[in-house]
Design a protein around this nucleic acid. Structure first.
Lengths: 114, 114
DNA sequence: TGAGTATACATCGGCTATCTTGGTATGTCA
DNA sequence: TGACATACCAAGATAGCCGATGTATACTCA
């Protein structure tokens, strides 16, 4: 099944903050991790990822630092900030509320209001 | 808590199809019903609703007809089509898959992949 | 009878996050 | 040397929701 891009919208930041909150990660790794973790359901691309990371960094929710890998390549690691954790907590709640609301609509038992 | 417009995006069509699938409804009624059904969590406005209804009608997922209410006012009722029911079924599945994927990311037990 | 509110339809511009496409550069392996 | 994975990034296009605004009718209550 295809992922509807419009479903992804609004959750990407949450996904990124959540993923990075576990351990500092670099872009390419985040891409692979998220896609793997959702069994390929998400098809997160770099064209979506990097702008999002930059946005979150600019908002002070992430902090970036460069590191040299054993392979010799430079990697830009992203680390969550305290502000990031606060926002993440909010976004988690927001998601739960949203999912609940949707379920309320999709529930077969829902009575026709009015 | 505020509803993130970006979360609504991509689910509005599903919500509308689902709501209308139970019984033909007119715009104003849909607005009130959805908002009531989600305990005010959604704040569906006419500026979002009517364009969406028109879009769905143009795609052949809804069919509209006018009716005169007892009150004397004209109401434009929307009815789901067979194509609409098929798409709704898809969208329900899509939503479940999506919600599952998100849960997989948000699950505290998720192991750091890679 | 007049004002205010609820009902009922609709359009339009602005916003913005995501997608697609394209680009640069390095390391590995055959 | 060529192919591929790794690793970063930019830019333009897209498309859908939101807020504001407009029109018109019916009801309520002073």
């Amino acid at each position: 099944m295809n992922t509807d891009p419009d479903l992804v919208r609004g959750t990407l930041n949450t996904i990124l903050l959540e993923t990075i909150s576990r351990a500092p990660m670099y872009g390419y790794q985040i891409c692979k991790t998220v896609n793997a973790k959702t069994s390929g359901y998400f098809n997160l691309r770099e064209g979506s990822l990097y702008p999002a990371l930059h946005r979150l960094e600019q908002e002070g929710l992430l902090k970036a630092y460069w590191e040299q890998a054993d392979t010799g390549r430079r990697r830009k690691y992203y680390q969550i900030t305290d502000a990031g954790r606060r926002v993440l907590a909010e976004k988690r709640e927001q998601w739960q509320a949203f999912a609940t609301a949707i379920q309320q609509v999709l529930a077969p038992s829902a009575l026709p209001a009015m």
